[in-house]
Design a protein around this nucleic acid. Sequence first.
DNA 1: GACCAGGGTAACT
DNA 2: AGTTACCATGGT
Length: 291
Amino acid sequence: MNIYCDGKNIVAEDVCDFDIAEILECGQCFNFNCLGDHDYELVAYKSYLHVRQEGQRVIFYDTSLDAFTSVWKAYFDLDTDYGMIKKSLIEADDRLAEAIEAKKGIRIIKQDFFETLISFIISQNNNIPRIKKIIQTLSCRYGACTLSVPGREIYAFPELEAMKAVTEEELRALKVGFRAPYIVDAVSKVAGGTIDETCLRNMSTAEARSCLMSIKGVGEKVANCVLLFGLGRMDAFPVDVWMKRIMEHMYFEGDTKKETIESFACEKFGSLAGYAQQYLFFYGKEKGIGR
DNA sequence: GACCAGGGTAACT
DNA sequence: AGTTACCATGGT
C-alpha cells in the first residue's frame, strides 16, 4: 500500500484485501451512507469521511495526512494482513474458501466501544435497514453536528455525556420499542463505571463477555458483537439467526443450539473466529443459505 | 394478517 | 436446566 497527498485528499494505492462496499455493507456497522458505486460517506470517532474506491485505489476526500494516520488507518485496520488471515482460515477449513473468495474485500473495522454497545442493543430482533434508521435518528437527536460538509448537517453518534440524561420515554419516541430500558441500563452502567472499556480490554474474552452480559438486554450474541466489533476480540463468534442457519447448513444436521455452534466455531477457528464469522455471515445471508 | 428481522427476559415446566 | 410467550416496529 502506498499513501500520498493529492491536494486536499489522501490517496491510497495498491490497497489489498479492501472493498469499501463489502466492508460497510457486511453488517458490522450502521452509521454510513451509500452515495454511488463504491462511493460512501460515514461518521466515526466524531469525524466525517467521504471515501471512494476505484479498483486498488482508495480516495479519502478532504482528509489531512494527520487525520488519516490518527483515525482512518486504524479504523479500516490497514496494518493488518488479511491475506495471511484468509490463508490461515482456509487452512483451518477449506470449506471457507467459497465465502472468502466471494467477499474477499471484507475487513473488520475498529469501531468505538460505546457506539458499538448501543448499536448492537438496538440490533436485537431487528433488521439492518431499520437499525440504520434508528441510529441515524438517535445521532440526529443527541449527537454532535460535524461541520465538515458546508450547507449540510451531519451528526456523529452520541457521546456518553449526551446520553446520560436520556429517558426511556424519549427513546421510545425514537421507535426503539422494547429496547429503550436496555439502552438506559447500558448508559447508566457505563456512566457509573460498572462497565469500563479499559477494564474490559484488560480482561479475558470470557470475563469481558460475562461482564457485558450484566447489562439488561445484552445476551450472548450482542456481547459477542461488542467484543468483536468494539473491543477488537477477534476470537468472538456472534451467532444470530443467519449464522445459525449458515452453520447448520455447513456443519450440522438439523436444529442446533447457538451455544453449541459458537463453541464449535471457536474451537475450529480459534483466534480468527471473528473473521470467519464475518465472511460467512455476509456471504451466507446474501445467498439466502437456509432460507 | 401472519411472518420476519445480526435476541433477550421472565415465567413457566 | 431447558422450553416458551412476549416484547415494538416496519417491511413483505
